[in-house]
Nucleic acid binder design. Structure first.
Lengths: 353, 353
DNA sequence: TGCTCATGGAGAAACGTATCTTCACCAAAC
DNA sequence: GTTTGGTGAAGATACGTTTCTCCATGAGCA
């Protein structure tokens, strides 16, 4: 009693294989009664077409790869930052609603896995410069869409936030709140996000004539972040406002500020880039920059599927299509000198206000 | 200039298709020099075997489905709770290290997606009673391993925490810390986790002769949690300790306690079940129960792959193999009346201690 | 010379589908 | 009476592997 194949259905319905295939896929020229009869027989036998055979025949698997560039040793920093998790969730959702499924794959080119799965295309998150994996996929003729502007590798399209504008907006926001010396907590890695953000910071500093005050650390190391935050606030030319590029920076900076007896926002203004809603309930709540990963995940997947299905612009060899998506600054108390109408009863404050 | 197939390799190497297949897969009887020559030619042509063809021929796709039972309307509560995210990450990792890839699929039986992907087996997280999807998979002869003791559906194996013991441990812990009236924040849904935990609580109450004090709410609704927390603390017979079954309960309870002027842990002891490390830095830090999702994810996947590859016990029709995994109680200040040797400098405390 | 055995390798049959081509049939048009 | 055209459906092929079966060769041995 094996699984029923298309042949069994054909035999049971007294028609040919062709007719079954056509009836089930809504193709060919068949009267409705034949269609419904075949469908009924197929249903009765519990027939499920073999995905493998269909893929082999049509060249389409309905599978999309999702690759997260790994920072440390672990195969995945997947849920390390809320950004990835949210982005992956949105991507999965978007793919499913168009009939595709998502396969999570390691960024390392372990052939035994990559070779074993038939992909129609791939989403790559944050490819490093000259990513060999992207090059290989391109060579195979597979469409690749990247989250994050690609550094010198051939992608079909890409989507990214306008990091430069976002940073400038934050710096202006902090300056407007009274900051004179704005510091930056940044990373040592060379990915586009880190690079563009840091450049924008330096550019802003030049423009307003402020001496750059920044500390960098390997973003994948959770301990290093706390140390770097401490280092930044321990400097003789201590900043009076800080923007942290990575998710955990908010809590790290808050802890460091506490250690040095700095009040937030009175003595130190704080903003960090994060998707976590933890920062709505910290004391004080921290202003965050959201990169809107849901929107990015959805867009990336839709672009990829468009490319797979041949919709949209033909793939050009030269400059791939790029889209810049807006970010959202969620302003909370940590970046406002004047507390915005405090709720109900303001409790007594220990220390001078 | 199409992608090279096995035929092209055979022609280029001057051997037969069989020889190429054998050489590349380490089978057959071939002298080493033939092997290496074929490998070299394949490499030169950039040959990648077609996963679809291999799957069709061997009946193995190397793909494992991962299904998260959805609570709300959204296709995924995926990253809603840190538990799922962590579990999924561990599962992905474990699968990859054995040469399998994970496909995330919706729990709803949308045939257009499920039918389009060739799966070797499926991991189901928290299947509801009489899950039709699991039954269908079973009918197709696919191995299914569930995270969470299955309620009346035919799985190959399952893994779960020992929820009853965990709850009892927590209640004893709270009682030892001085709690007299322990409340419970629980859910309205009928999944195994909620049911077993609630039963354990009621059982404990009977044993020690305490009147049960609990509020339930639909766990998938983030707002309802805060409301329920409030309701629990607003009761005339207000509890002096609470255990919350769901991840956000900690912050919700903390906020509610603040509203009612209750100090934690002096007036109210708090524990919740969560994988989030946010609770290490709340004020005060909150004691949490970790279900160790990494360990569960890894175990579940390994059991599934064992079943796929025919290792391990033969599938029995009656009682499937079940494994209970230990949980971990991470004790923090919120559940201890006497603060455990405070670090270094104890700052002045506002209000009486 | 015959026989067995081991070695190296080729041939061909699946796997289950989609689709291109062909074919029979019948009615209407020239 | 032969062409045309449309309808309904069957035949056959190809997708790219893996693997079962079988063959040729040459060595060892009686």
């Amino acid at each position: 009693m094996e699984r029923a194949g298309i042949r069994d259905v054909a035999a049971a319905a007294g028609v040919s294989i062709t007719t079954v295939s056509d009836a089930l896929n809504g193709k060919g020229r068949l009267p409705d009664e034949t269609r419904s009869k075949v469908r009924e027989v197929a249903e009765r036998l519990g027939y499920r077409p073999s995905a493998a055979a269909r893929t082999l025949r049509t060249g389409r698997s309905g599978l999309i790869g999702l690759t997260v560039t790994t920072y440390g040793q672990e195969p995945f920093t997947f849920t390390e930052f809320a950004y990835f998790a949210e982005m992956a969730r949105a991507a999965t959702s978007a793919a499913l609603s168009r009939g595709y499924a998502l396969v999570v794959l390691p960024a390392t080119s372990r052939h035994d896995v990559w070779g074993n799965v038939a992909l129609d295309g791939t989403v790559v998150i944050d490819p490093p410069d000259h990513d060999p994996m992207v090059a290989e996929l391109y060579r195979q003729g597979l469409p690749v869409v990247s989250d994050g502007r690609p550094g010198n590798c051939p992608v079909t399209a890409w989507v990214d936030n306008d990091h430069a504008s976002a940073v400038l907006e934050i710096l202006d926001h902090l300056a407007a709140a009274g900051a004179r010396r704005i510091g930056l907590l940044t990373g040592t890695s060379t990915d586009t996000y880190t690079r563009l953000s840091t450049e924008a910071y330096l550019c802003w500093c030049r423009r307003v004539g402020q001496e750059p005050l920044y500390e960098e650390y390997p973003a994948h190391d959770p301990c290093a972040g706390a140390v770097a935050a401490d280092r930044l606030l321990a400097r003789p030319d201590r900043p009076d406002a800080v923007y942290g590029l990575f998710d955990p920076n908010g809590t790290d900076l808050l802890a460091a500020a506490r250690r040095y007896g700095l009040r937030v926002p009175e003595d130190l203004l704080l903003v960090c880039c994060s998707e976590s809603d933890v920062y709505a309930t910290t004391e004080p709540p921290i202003t965050t920059l959201s990169l809107k990963p849901q929107r990015i995940g959805t867009t990336v997947v839709n672009l990829l599927i468009d490319a797979i299905e041949g919709i949209g612009p033909a793939p050009t060899t030269d400059t791939p299509e790029g889209q810049l998506m807006p970010t959202e600054l969620i302003v909370r108390r940590s970046s406002q000198r004047r507390a915005p109408r405090t709720t109900v009863s303001a409790p007594r404050e220990p220390g001078e206000a």
